[in-house]
Design a protein around this nucleic acid. Structure first.
Lengths: 246, 246
DNA sequence: CAGTGGTCTAGACCACTGA
DNA sequence: CAGTGGTCTAGACCACTGA
């Protein structure tokens, strides 16, 4: 190998690590349209030759681009610029207590329901139980600086969190407690806008029929459903923010 | 190395690749609470010894867990189980035409506005222009099987898409066209619930004040703002779905 | 068959941390 | 100082695809 080509980068903007330089070269080419979606990109061998690095280094750069969805790879054929027909964003759903605390505000919770019930047929299906089995049910309203922010209607699979009902939910949020019980989550969710029901409007102290942002989330851990939650927020007081970075 | 330890896995559920086996071992330990959040996990050297693989293989497994946010690593100190205080989900925002077509339904669009305007101070700020500069503005209503689904109010930076206004938006959606012009996106968005304005209610053929799911999205490419869009959907006809897998 | 990507090994040098 | 992670090299064997 020619050591003269291994000069120290004088530009601070150039990434130091060789794998990062290869990755940036490809990423910039993609963003400038050098390879149209679906087009064949340089092979690993070509990149090895061009950058004078080993194949493992090139492989790492390409594998990270693959993980980011920027390229598709086919064994025996080549690496192709991905078709970016969709924009996927990272949506972070945080524990509400942390979110409020981070804004420097006060959080408190009112517990309206915390009891064991019998699962309806529909609920049993969602939680992997049989109709009529015991489920835990909590209905809690969360406040930010004294203003109602979220009405949290939640059902919990007792098998996953047998002590759930003994938790003091004025001190610990259900989300926080359940994250301790089952740390690794898999979730499905939907976000919709709907009018507040009579009960929701009363608990959130908003007008009947005011628009609410409703997040319904079902959470599983190790393939077992843990909890089903319906989180209702006054549209005027809550929004979800996120971003996407390639 | 002891070759006897390299038996073929008789269980089909065990991943074949050594790096995948290491990764799965760590992932399962995390999901079973073997390492509590913040706890020290095995070092690379320990994993090398335990699995009888080379360090590069262990490194790959750990790097992927790092990318997935399941561990944190500190040089000179060790690898730790991450604090999973937030649940982050992948939210995929698709081209509405594709989304409707995939449901086997008919999509069509009504173009209500498509013209050049002068940017207000606020809009100029968002698009990286000067107040009074030219911007392109479109207002388009999208229909699924003849029912209004989305009111798309969009401003576009002319520098990024000079031909924007010559596109026939009854045939091509702005999203589809802009993805061709600038393939690599970076976006910020917010999702909120609000009441339909008089104009929105009329265009979407819903009652005044009905709840709507509103997605505001600002898109950049190569650091340059491309477009700012406000997408208003009748709450009764549209929801956003997503999922999170660790 | 040559070319492609998927994965692995057995070393190496380094920066960093904390005792 | 020993232990940690961050990165790299120069090979290797393999499965797969398409001419």
């Amino acid at each position: 190998m020619d050591l003269a080509t291994r000069e120290r980068a004088p530009h601070p903007e150039a990434p130091a690590a060789p794998y990062a330089r290869v990755k940036q070269f490809l990423k910039e080419g993609l963003s400038h349209g050098r390879w149209a979606p679906g087009a064949l990109m340089p092979s690993e061998a070509e990149l090895v030759a061009r950058f004078g690095v080993s194949r493992m280094t090139v492989t790492r750069a390409l594998r990270e681009l693959l993980a980011e969805g920027l390229v598709t790879r086919v064994q025996g054929v080549g690496t192709f610029a991905a078709h970016l027909s969709k924009v996927s964003s990272t949506l972070t759903i945080r524990d509400l207590h942390d979110e409020i605390a981070e804004r420097g505000h006060r959080h408190h919770a009112e517990v309206h329901t915390a009891r064991q019930e019998r699962a309806s047929a529909e609920l049993a299906l969602q939680l992997g139980l049989n109709s009529g089995d015991a489920v835990f049910h909590t209905l809690i309203v969360h406040f930010e600086n004294g203003v109602p922010l979220q009405c949290e209607d939640r059902y919990v699979n007792p098998a996953c969190a047998p002590d759930y009902l003994s938790v003091d939910f004025t001190q610990t949020t259900p989300t926080h407690y359940l994250l301790q019980v089952a740390p690794l989550w898999e979730a499905q969710f939907s976000i919709e806008a709907s009018q507040a029901s009579a009960q929701e409007a009363r608990l959130l102290r908003i007008g009947l029929g005011e628009p609410c942002l409703v997040l319904v989330r079902r959470t599983m851990s190790r393939g077992v459903p843990i909890t089903l939650a319906r989180l209702v927020h006054p549209g005027s007081r809550y929004q979800i923010d996120g971003q996407f970075k390639p």
